[in-house]
Design a protein around this nucleic acid. Structure first.
Lengths: 119, 119
DNA sequence: CGGTATCCTTTCGGATACTG
DNA sequence: CAGTATCCGAAAGGATACCG
């Protein structure tokens, strides 16, 4: 195990607080993505600073995309998953399946199409 | 998204630094698991305090098991994955596959049976 | 609305020494 | 060998105010 390990390098940015949850929220937004204020609303407890920071990191990693419409007022800013970001949902799904199988008894989340996250 | 979210609750402990890497190292040990000193050796940069802390957390979560032989001197302490811990490897594998597909060009890691982590 | 800027607290985690 | 104890610095992250 060293810094060349793929798992090691990937966890460096994915293990950060809120990162995967932001990905999950954008997935819930489906093809429409979500706006900054929607993400803020849907991630209770996150501060504006933290949200901005994580969004920038995820954009730098190529997992999300930001579309800004400066012509409207107030400015409209939408965030979407990139193909790489979409693909990450498989990992999140594996994580959820594991948790439901071994760790958590969460009926709502165990439904075929989870009412909350559709995962 | 709130504290009842399965993904949220799972990331609370799995996203901590070293946690998944410790799981991965124990997986590499296969049925023999690994000793404290082996984990320390195989996770360059981890401090004894950090290793102890994470091992305790993972044990509390039921992902690893610690077998101590006090009759030998020095005391022998071995760590193994529990069934829940073994099952987590599927998630780590999904993570690695995603990274190789979208983020990292890591030839060694992409081999059918990765020379380093056998994942 | 979509962020920044500032300040401040807390906790994470590193270094090192020590012990049964 | 398998940890624990102590100390300490850096950084992560929270609260809040503010701005175009």
């Amino acid at each position: 195990m060293d810094e060349s390990c793929t798992v090691y390098r990937t966890m460096e940015y994915l293990s950060k607080r809120w990162s995967l949850l932001i990905i999950l929220e954008l997935f819930k937004g489906q093809e429409d993505g979500k706006r900054y204020s929607e993400l803020k609303r849907d991630l209770p407890g996150i501060t504006p600073k933290m949200l901005s920071t994580r969004l920038k990191e995820l954009e730098d990693e190529g997992l999300i995309e930001n579309v800004v419409d400066s012509s409207s007022f107030p400015v409209r800013s939408d965030y979407f998953l990139t193909p790489a970001g979409w693909a990450l949902i498989d990992v999140v799904k594996a994580l959820k399946d594991w948790a439901l199988a071994w760790k958590i008894d969460n009926v709502a989340c165990g439904l075929q199409d989870c009412a909350d996250c559709h995962l």
